[in-house]
Simulated scan of single mutants.
Amino acid sequence: MAQTTAVSSTHRLWIGAQAWALRRLSAFSRAPRTAPHLETGTRGEREALFHLRRLGYTIVAHRWRTPKLRGDVDLVAGHGHTLCIVEVKTRTRRDAVPAELAVDPDKQRILRRLARAYLHRLPPRAREAPVRFDVISIYLESSPTSTPAPSIQLNIELNQGAFGWA
Rank of each mutant, 00 (worst) to 15 (best):
Q3D: 13
T4H: 15
T5E: 13
S8A: 07
S9C: 03
T10V: 09
T10A: 14
T10F: 08
H11M: 04
H11G: 05
W14Y: 13
I15V: 11
A17H: 15
A21G: 01
A21S: 04
R23D: 15
L25V: 09
L25P: 01
F28S: 11
F28E: 15
S29I: 11
P36T: 01
P36N: 05
H37K: 05
L38F: 12
L38H: 08
T42A: 14
T42E: 14
R43G: 03
R43S: 10
A48N: 03
F50M: 08
H51W: 14
L52A: 09
R54A: 05
G56L: 07
T58Y: 03
A61L: 00
H62I: 12
H62N: 04
R63M: 04
R65E: 10
P67N: 03
D74K: 01
L75W: 12
C84G: 06
V86M: 10
V86E: 04
E87W: 10
V88K: 02
V88H: 02
T92D: 13
T92G: 10
R93F: 12
R94C: 00
V103F: 04
P105K: 02
L111E: 05
R113K: 14
R113P: 04
R116V: 04
L119P: 05
H120D: 11
R121K: 15
L122N: 01
P123R: 13
R125V: 02
A126L: 15
R127E: 13
D134T: 11
S137Y: 04
S137V: 02
I138P: 03
Y139T: 02
L140E: 14
S142E: 12
P144M: 03
T145C: 09
S146N: 12
S146A: 12
A149T: 08
A149I: 08
L154I: 14
E157W: 05
E157Y: 07
E157L: 10
L158G: 02
N159T: 05
Q160V: 07
Q160G: 10
F163Q: 01
G164R: 12
G164L: 03
A166R: 04
